[in-house]
Design a protein around this nucleic acid. Sequence first.
RNA 1: GCGCCCGUAGCUCAGUAGGACAGAGCAGCGGAUUUCUAAUCCGCUGGUCGGGGGUUCGAAUCCCUCCGGGCGCGCCA
Length: 689
Amino acid sequence: MIAQSTLKLLRDRFRAAIGRIGGDPDADPGVRVATEARFGDFQCNAAMALARKLGLKPPEAAQRIVAAVAPELAEVVEPLEIANPGFINIRLRTSYLARCLESIEPPAAGAEDRLGLPKVAQPERVIVDYSSPNIAKQMHVGHLRSTIIGDAFVRVLGFQGHDVLRQNHIGDWGTAIGMVILGLWYIAARLQRGERPAEIEKRIAELHALRGKPDETRQPVLERIAAEWSLDLENQALDDFADADIQLEQLELGYIFVQALVAAIGPLVIRVKRDDLIAVPQKVTRMLQQGGPENELERRAWRRAREISVAYCQSLYDRLGVLLKPEDFRGESAYNDDLPRVITDLRLTLKPRDRSRPAADAYGELRIDQGATCVYLYDAKHQPRFKNPDGQELPMIVQKSDGAYLYATTDLAAIRYRLMECVFPAGKGATRIVYVTDARQKQHFEMFLAAARALGWLTPRVNVQHATFGSVLGEDKRPLKTRAGKNVKLAELLDEAESRALRTLDEKLDQETGPQRGPLDEAQRREIARRIGVGAVKYSDLVRDRNSDYVFSFDAMLAMEGNTAPYMLYAYARIRSIYRKVEARLGKLDPYGPDVRISLDRPEERTLALRLVRFADTLDIVAADLAPHVLCSYLFDLAGEFMRFFEACPVLQAESDSLRLSRMRLCDLTARTLRVGLGLLGIEPVERM
RNA sequence: GCGCCCGUAGCUCAGUAGGACAGAGCAGCGGAUUUCUAAUCCGCUGGUCGGGGGUUCGAAUCCCUCCGGGCGCGCCA
């Protein structure tokens, strides 16, 4: 079998050769993809460093490397060339490229197409923590990025053969949960009274309008609303609401109402029955968290709110083609019972240190400050790792002065579970954890990961990566919002992308109804447009470096030119149409037949073949750096090189039958690579467009 | 104030375990089609890699400094 990662093969050989002639056998052998095609396919830059070490001139060092490595690579590369000052230019033998591609078997029916790539020898147990919406809220663009990027990681790491566990750490507990429950009751009661959502929206607007108004203005309005609500709570059995059949949009409306109401109260005292209204949400939160039969109503309402939210999220995941499933939802509530133990562990482990001598490593200390339980983090020189704007050391608070826990506590409980308890098919405990959140949470992650290390839970053997990403901005360069200043709803965003894609598709199809395209009926068009629209939204999220902010633009993501989903899908569809055409004219041919040889005589054929062979190297980079945009760039290059091949090298009209089969094989290998590659990005291909 | 991210062609962005005259797409200009899908391909134009120092045989990439932008910084998540 031919080694599929050519870069790895070259690296190993050069490293060994450099070791044999007196260089560092563990050092980077400096093998890179060539900076320019005229320098070959790869290059080795190790001679300059080696020359210094051995007291040689760089060209001499290069000579020695070449002499040492050449015999082992005779089958793989053309004679190595040395260029000034000491670059070694590496050009793969065309016969080697052809053999690599010939070794890729046709895809087995029903099985995953692996393009001949082996799975990793040592699978990691990876947790990818992504998406993580809050309950009772519609998903918006912020969640979109985490969801799409995280899903690409899951797919790529899974494809490589790692053991991947998806975790959707949803916000289903926390201090705001009382408002969610109250919101559920409120909306259920009002709907039962026959009120329409529009009326509730009006009431919310009324509340918002009270902001900044004098107390005398606010008081009567608030009293009136509170009185109506009290009546609901008295006259209607809360039982009836516990299983309310409402949609997430309505639940969210109720929640927003409660938020608006509380915000409008300010220093006023508004009573609902015997309670001061402003304290009711916290009271409900406490009742839920205490549990027990007397708080069963709160429990049921919480469970119902969660069900509604999970069902809503799942429908969006299904629409997006995201792998997350209900069993992957393991939110904050799952760790509630572990939180006291986290505090205990912190208390027992993070003892005060002797500062007169350096510490062995970074460490943490647990202290109570103003009633809050705090973890202070220090480096080995006893310097605080984090500071507040006043220059004082900044702790991570794990328990508030009122006894409540915070997300840092939950995150610690979650990582403990993931490292020690969570079960993979191949064993217990993750060896790699990937968190996919926006970049603003970076400091929080540094803090709680430092605490996890200080606790001894997180050891250097575990690879933890915080895959951050930038914000989605509107045309005004501010975080994307609607005209009304609301978050853009994900569902509406997808609707828009799909309908724009459909409009373009219809235009094209009406313009030219060639036999390759048509005939496509309404349902087929819609399905193609759906794939283009969803694909465009996903691709535009993946195509640039995660960390950069970007301006959301339908026009840019749906452009037919450039590094976009439509261009990729077009390239794929065009290749597929060759098959239909060849079969229509010549009957069924088997480009994978035993006598078929891949011919790479034309430069366009060779360039395409080289790109195909680089797929494995690309995936290694994507997986190691968690950089989906590297895969996008690869696929874009592949598509471009295929188009060039396609322009220059006739398939149907090839000079000979064997050349036709060779080119059909190249076409199919390209199509498969595009399909697999796009699939790893979570994008479904189209057979025609 | 401290910390993190960013500044590359008119626009949008690649390129950082240092490597050869800095790449692509879009836009602009000029070509290619009795089509294997022109949602394509080819060519041209276009850059003080934010400024300045330093390390190095070699710096967009590493270090220092300054300028400009974004984000974060104690009981929210």
